[in-house]
């Protein structure tokens, strides 16, 4: 290869570099601008009146508090189930693992509304033995506050397991193996070695679960209803505002959710969480 050839090929690759960079960065910038503009116009549309009307509305304040409470409880439940579950998925190989894995993905990929319908059927006194049993003991689940937590837990739980499995996958199993060769039982190796190492990932996963739970809408409105002062949560309150044509408070409520999600994401990133979903 002559030096002239080399020059032209390096020039070509430099041109290619510039083109590729501006192309990929340009598209990214386009998308970012779009997101920013959408949020900006929504925030502006709400207007000062929208925000003040919203914050004065006792139904909305109640919905905000209930959202914070239920998504926190749902997250705690999800983490309790997901930590050992994700650990097992990550460390052990067993027959049918693929099928199990697929079932775990279902709550994540199915439209959340469908989960609400499934829960209504699952707890139906007319269509399910579990519902019939609960009714016999005069226990009601549908259209109650626990129904909100169940709906959030079911949808966000699969997501928590995915998040935490990624954490355990990224940790080498060698430390636990060493602990076991030194005489630790499997459970002791899990609690004293794996768990402390995974702490950051677990907290990050919990925050993402919480953000997901607080934004949950479809299964809640179907399974828990939207009763003001009882089962009305933030996303359903925003939806009802739209239903009655109160668009300014609706936009304001949307910005409250955006704010909560942003804070959660920032904490997530701060704790070293990565942008994976599963």
């Amino acid at each position: 290869m002559s030096s002239a050839d080399r020059k032209s090929s390096s020039r070509k690759s430099a041109a290619d570099e510039v083109f590729f960079k501006s192309w990929s960065n340009g598209l990214l910038l386009f998308y970012l601008t779009l997101v920013a503009l959408i949020l900006f116009f929504t925030a502006r549309y709400a207007g000062i009146a929208g925000y003040t009307e919203l914050l004065r509305d006792p139904d909305f304040r109640g919905a905000l508090i209930l959202s914070l409470e239920t998504s926190t409880i749902a997250t705690l439940l999800a983490v309790v189930v997901a930590v050992p579950g994700a650990y097992a998925l990550s460390r052990y190989r067993f027959p049918g693992q693929n099928i199990l894995d697929t079932i775990l993905d279902l709550p994540i990929v199915l439209p959340p509304l469908i989960m609400g319908v499934c829960l209504l059927i699952f707890f139906s006194p007319a269509a399910s033995p579990i519902g019939a049993f609960l009714k016999e003991h005069d226990l009601r689940v549908a259209y109650t506050r626990p129904a909100i937590v169940i709906a959030q837990f079911m949808v966000a739980g699969g997501f928590t397991i995915r998040c935490l499995k990624a954490t355990f996958d990224s940790m080498t199993p060698r430390y636990e193996q060493v602990a076991r060769t030194l005489g630790c039982s499997s459970s002791r190796a899990f609690f004293t070695v794996a768990l402390p190492l995974a702490k950051g990932g677990i907290v990050a996963g919990a925050i993402m679960t919480w953000a997901r739970a607080i934004g949950e809408f479809g299964p809640i409105i179907v399974f828990a209803g939207s009763i003001s002062g009882y089962t009305l949560v933030l996303p359903t309150a925003i939806f009802l505002k739209m239903q009655v044509g109160d668009l300014e408070p609706m936009a304001a409520g949307t910005m409250v959710l955006v704010f909560i999600a942003t804070v959660a994401l920032l904490i997530f990133k701060r704790l070293g969480g990565r942008g994976y979903i599963w």
Binding site: L120, I121, F123, S124, P125, A126, A127, G131, K135, R140, A142, Y143, I221, V222, G225, S226, I227, S228, T231, T236, F239, L240, Q243
Partner: peptide
């Protein structure tokens, strides 16, 4: 027990025994 955001929800809830 509930106030539904859409009408068919009520029919479904009676059908399912809620």
């Amino acid at each position: 027990t509930t106030s539904a955001a859409t009408v068919p929800e009520l029919g479904n809830a009676i059908k399912l025994g809620h």
